[in-house]
Design a protein around this nucleic acid. Sequence first.
DNA 1: TTGTATGCGTTATCAC
DNA 2: GTGATAACGCATACAA
Lengths: 345, 345
Amino acid sequence: MTVQMSEDDPAEAILARVHARGGAPTIYDIAELAGVNPSTVSRALGKPGRISAATAAKVRAAAERLDFRVNPMARALQTGKTKMIGLVLADITNPVVFGIVRGAEHAAAEAGYTLVIAESQESGENEAEAIERLLPSVDALVLATTRLAASAITGIAEHKPVILMNRAVDGIRSVLPDVEAGIIELLDHLAGLGHRSVAFLAGPDSSWISARRWSTILAAAVARDMAIVEIGPNAPTIAGGRAALPRVRAAQVSAVIAYNDLMAIGLMQEAASVGIPIPDRLSVTGFDDIFGSELISPPLTTVGADLAAAGRQAVERLLDPEDAQPAPLPTQLIVRGSTGPAPRA
Amino acid sequence: MTVQMSEDDPAEAILARVHARGGAPTIYDIAELAGVNPSTVSRALGKPGRISAATAAKVRAAAERLDFRVNPMARALQTGKTKMIGLVLADITNPVVFGIVRGAEHAAAEAGYTLVIAESQESGENEAEAIERLLPSVDALVLATTRLAASAITGIAEHKPVILMNRAVDGIRSVLPDVEAGIIELLDHLAGLGHRSVAFLAGPDSSWISARRWSTILAAAVARDMAIVEIGPNAPTIAGGRAALPRVRAAQVSAVIAYNDLMAIGLMQEAASVGIPIPDRLSVTGFDDIFGSELISPPLTTVGADLAAAGRQAVERLLDPEDAQPAPLPTQLIVRGSTGPAPRA
DNA sequence: TTGTATGCGTTATCAC
DNA sequence: GTGATAACGCATACAA
C-alpha cells in the first residue's frame, strides 16, 4: 500500500479539514503546514524582504499546495483598504462609456485593483443612491458625467478620493478633454466650407461639459463672425437628437454642432426620414467619436477624444498620491462625410 | 451662550471622536449614543422584528444622526457573503455587452448587490487571471462567452455559484438564447428571397455559441435543400469580418450569415470598399442586433436577442437558490436592408 | 427583548 | 527573523 501516502500527507489532512468546514484555506492552515506562526505567513506573503529566504520558500510552497488566496475582506477590515475602485456612470448603454470602462478597468487591474460599477440612468436620485451603496466598499471613486450638485460632490470627497470626468468642481480633481482645441478645428473646418450660420444642439441643463462646449463654440464663432445659436436643452440621446430637428430647421442654419454623437446621429436619422439631404442641405457634427459614428451614412464628422485614455487617466490619477492636474486630454477633429460646403443662399 | 449646545450634544462629541480617528462611525458609536449594546444595534439595523419598536427607533435615530453605514467588509468577514457579483466579459468594447452589463447591474442593484466587472480581452489567460482575482470577493460569478475549458469552469463552480452566458457546460447553469427559433426564421427569410447557396461566417474556434449556431444553420439549410458552407474560424470583430471577404467571394454564395453583427458589419464595409453592392450582389446577416446595426447602410438584417434581459436573468438566477433552467430567451429575426432577392445566376 | 462573549481572517504591535 | 497577541467592525450563539 505504498501508494496510500496521501493519507499520511499532512497537506491532504489539512485540505480535508478545510473542505469539511466549507471554507477556504487561511493563513492558519498554511502556518500549520509550513510549521511557522500565522503572522510569519502574513509577512512572507505580503512583505518581500522582511523574512528569511528559507521560511519564505516554505510558506510559499505551503500556500501553493493548499491553493491559498488571501481573503480580501479580512485584509480590508484590518487595513481599511479594499483595493476596489468605484465607477459611476450616467448611462451604460451610451457608447461613449465603452472606452472609459475599458481604460479604467485596465488601469485598475494593472494596479491590482478591481473595478466596481454602478449606473445612474441619467437620474440624480439613482446616482446618489448608487454612490451611497458603493462608497463604503471602495477606496476611491470615479464620477463620470455626474449630475450631482457640487456640494454633494464635495461632501463625498471628504470621505474618499474622488475624480470627475467631464466636469470641473472647485477643489476636486477632474479629467477633462481639451475642448478648445477640437472646437477651434471644427469651426475652422465649417468656416472653410462656407458656413456662416450655425446651431449648437445643447445637452441636458445639468451637463457641465455641454455648457463648456457651448461657451467655447460661442466665442470661436463670434471670433469668426459666424452667426451662432444654442438650441436646447436636449436629452443626450438619439431620441433627443431626433426631437430637435424641427427647431433646427426653424433656425435656418446651414450647420449643426450636436453636443454628442448620439444626438448627431438622431438628428441625421430624422433629417433622412423627412428628406433633408446631409450634408448637401445641412452639415452635422458631433463630439466623442463613438462606435457607430463612422458606420452611419454619411459617416459623422466629429470631435473625437481618446475615451480609453481618459478612463485610464482617471484611475491612475486616483491611485497616485502626488497627482497634479495634467494637461487636458487632446481632442481632434475627425472629418467624415456629414459635413460639406454650405448650400448657396 | 445657549447656542453653544452643540458642545454638550453627545452626538457631536462622538462625531468628533470618529473624525479624529479618521474612520467611519461603527455600531459601537451608535450603541453609545443610543445607550444600548452594540449587538442590539446590529439587530435593530439588520433584523426588523426581533427588537422592540422603541429601541429600534432610538437606534435608527442614532444611526441617522451619525450618518452610519455598515462596513461591508466587516459584515462579509463575519457572514461570508460579500453582496457582490462578478461579471467576466471577453471584450468590453463589443456593443453586445452593453445590454448585458446594464441588465446585470440593474438586477444586482435591485437585490442589494454590487456588480464588479473584469475583462479578459478575448484571452484565456487574462480570463483565468481575472476570475482568480475576482473569486474571493464575490458571492457568485457570471461568465459571459467564456473561453475557459469546461474543466476549469467546473472547478470554479465548486467554490462559488456560476452561471454561463452563451455557453453550455454539463452541470453548470447557463442563460442561452433560443438559437433555433431565430435561425429558422432567418433561413426561411433567405429561402423566400431565392437564396440557394449560403455561407456561415464562423466565430472563434473556442466559441460554443458559434458552433451551436453553425450546427443549427446546417440542419436548417439541409432541410431546405440549400447549399451551406462554413467559413472560419474568424475573429468576432469588424476586422475579422473584413478579412473574411475574399473567402466569401471564393465560395460564390449569394448570402452570408455572420456569427455576429460586428463581423457582418466588417464584411459589409469591406464589400463596399471593393464595390460589391449589398444586398444586390450579396445578402448579409448577423446576430445580436447591437447598437450600430441599424445605423449602418444598408441597415443590417439580424437575429436579435434581448441582451439586457439576458444579463438580468443571469444575476437573478444566480441569486435564486431554487432556480430551474428556464426556457431559452426568445430571439427574433429583424429584417432590414442588408438582405434582398438572390441575384439571378 | 436585550446583554455577553466569541469568532470571522488578516495585519500590526509588541516582544523575544 | 520570528512568535504571541491585539485589533479591525460586525454578526451570532448563548445567557439572562
